[in-house]
Write a protein that binds this DNA or RNA. Structure first.
Lengths: 234, 234
DNA sequence: CATTTTTGTTAATGTAAGGTTAAATGATAA
DNA sequence: TTATCATTTAACCTTACATTAACAAAAATG
C-alpha cells in the first residue's frame, strides 16, 4: 500500500542549487514544489497543503524569515527548516524565534538533510493524532467559532474575539476540564516563554473571564504554577 | 515565574569542557547532573528523571551511542542531543538512527545550544498531553486527582492541593497500606534530605491529615524513624 | 527516669504567581 | 495622516506556597 507522498515546499532563489535539491528530494520520494522567491513561495503555500517547508534565508524581495512569519500566521503547525549561509548565529537564533523546527548551514550534506526531514515529518505525524483541526466548540451556553473568531452566548449577539483571545480560548477549549499548561499556550501562541509573555497571557485570561461571566457554569480556574483549566459545571 | 527547573543529564568525559558547559547551563537555570563517562552516565540516568540528555559521542569505555541505546531501552521519550567532534557525518547519521533529537559539532556556539535545548524541551512539553494514567487514586471516600491537583470527598467540593501536598499524598497513595519511607519522599519531592526538608515534610503531613479527617477510616500513621503509612481501614 | 531524638502542630515570614486595571506601544484601516 | 483596535508593559494588589521558627508531645535510648 503506497502511502501518500509527503509534500515539501522548497523556497530557494539560487536556480542551480534549487533544482539540484529538488531533484534530490524527488528521488527520495517526496513531492516537491519549488518556488524561486519569497513572494512566489507564499502564493504556492496558500494554494496547497504541505508537510514541510524548506526556506532559504537569503532571498531578494522577501527573505526567509518574513516568509516564515506569513506562513505561521496561516498555519501554526507546518514544520519549517531554514537554510542559512555559513554559521550565521544571528540567523539561527532568529529562526528559532519564528518557530523554526531546524536549520541547516549551507553547504550541507544531503543525507543529513534527508534524516532531518524524516525525523521532523515523523514527529509531526505522531503529534498530529489528537490535533485534528477543530474550530468549533460548545462551551456551556457559548458557541465558539474560532475560524471566524467569534463567541456567541445563547440567543445573544456574537462577540468578536481578537486573534490572541481566540487562540487562547481555543486552546482552553481543546483541553476542556483538563489542564491547559501555561507553557503550552506560551509556546504555541506567543512562541516565547518569558516574564512578559506570561504577564500578557494573564491579561488575556482576564479578558476571557469577563466574556465568560455570562454563563456562571463556565469558569477558568488556575492551577498554581501549572496552567489553567476551563471547566463547565453541569 | 520559577517553574520547576528542567533537569539535564550531561555526559562528557573532558573534565574542563564538561565543567564549563555544566556551569553555563546552570547559569541559565537548568539543573545539571554531570557524569564523566558512559558508565556513570547510565547509573545516574537510572536514579533520576531527566528532561534532556546531552551526550558526548567520543568517550572511553562506553561511547555516546551505546549509552543512548541503553537509555532508549529504559525510556523512549527523553530527548537526546549528541555532541560530536568535527563534522563527522557518520556520527550524525548514526546518532539519528539511535533516536537523537539533535546533534552539535564541537566546538559550538553556546547560545545556539541554549536555543536548541529550549526548543526541544518545549516540543516535548507540547507532546506530553494525555498521560492520564497513574494520576487518579481512590483513597477511602476520597478521590485524588493528582494531575489536576485536587482532592474530592464523596459528594463534596474538590479541595485544591498545593504542589507539595499533592506530590506527597500521591506518593503515599502509591504505597497505600505500605511503608512510604521518609527518605523516598525527601529525595523524590524535596530533592534533598536534611533537617529542614524533613521538618517541612512533617508540616505537610499535618496538612494532609487535616484534609483526610473527613473520612475517619483514612489515616496517616508514622513509623518512627522509618516513614509514614497511609492506611484505609475497611 | 532523665535526656535526646523524632514527630506533631500552629503560626509567621518571605517570595513567587496570578489578578486587575490603565497606560503605552504597535499595527491597521479609513 | 488620524482613528481604531490589538497587544504589551507597567504598576499595584491579592493569593498561594514553601520554609522556618517555636514549642509540644511521643518515642527511643541508656
Amino acid at each position: 500500500m503506497e502511502e501518500q507522498k509527503k509534500r515539501i515546499l522548497l523556497v530557494e532563489d539560487d536556480p542551480n542549487f534549487g533544482t539540484v535539491l529538488k531533484d534530490y528530494l524527488m528521488m527520495n520520494d517526496y513531492e516537491v514544489t519549488h518556488a524561486k522567491n519569497g513572494m512566489e513561495g507564499f502564493e504556492k503555500f496558500k494554494k496547497d497543503d504541505f508537510d514541510l517547508c524548506i526556506l532559504d534565508v537569503m532571498m531578494p524581495y522577501k527573505d526567509g524569515f518574513t516568509l516564515a512569519k506569513e506562513i505561521r500566521e496561516k498555519n501554526t503547525d507546518v514544520p519549517i527548516i531554514f537554510l542559512t549561509a555559513k554559521t550565521m548565529k544571528e540567523d539561527v537564533l532568529k529562526g528559532y524565534k519564528v518557530g523554526a523546527d531546524d536549520y541547516l548551514n549551507k553547504p550541507f550534506d544531503s543525507e543529513v538533510l534527508l534524516m532531518k526531514i524524516k525525523a521532523i515529518i515523523q514527529r509531526k505525524a505522531t503529534e498530529t493524532i489528537s490535533d485534528s483541526k477543530q474550530f468549533e466548540f460548545k462551551i456551556g451556553d457559548f458557541d465558539l467559532n474560532s475560524k471566524l473568531r467569534f463567541l456567541k452566548f445563547k440567543g445573544g449577539d456574537p462577540v468578536k474575539l481578537s486573534p490572541k483571545e481566540n487562540e487562547l480560548l481555543r486552546l482552553l477549549a481543546l483541553h476542556e476540564n483538563d489542564l491547559m499548561p501555561r507553557e503550552l499556550a506560551l509556546t504555541k501562541i506567543w512562541r516565547d516563554d518569558n516574564y512578559f509573555t506570561s504577564r500578557s497571557m494573564d491579561v488575556y485570561i482576564a479578558k476571557l473571564r469577563k466574556y465568560l461571566k455570562l454563563d456562571e457554569k463556565v469558569e477558568i480556574l488556575n492551577i498554581h504554577g501549572e496552567g489553567f483549566r476551563l471547566v463547565v459545571n453541569s
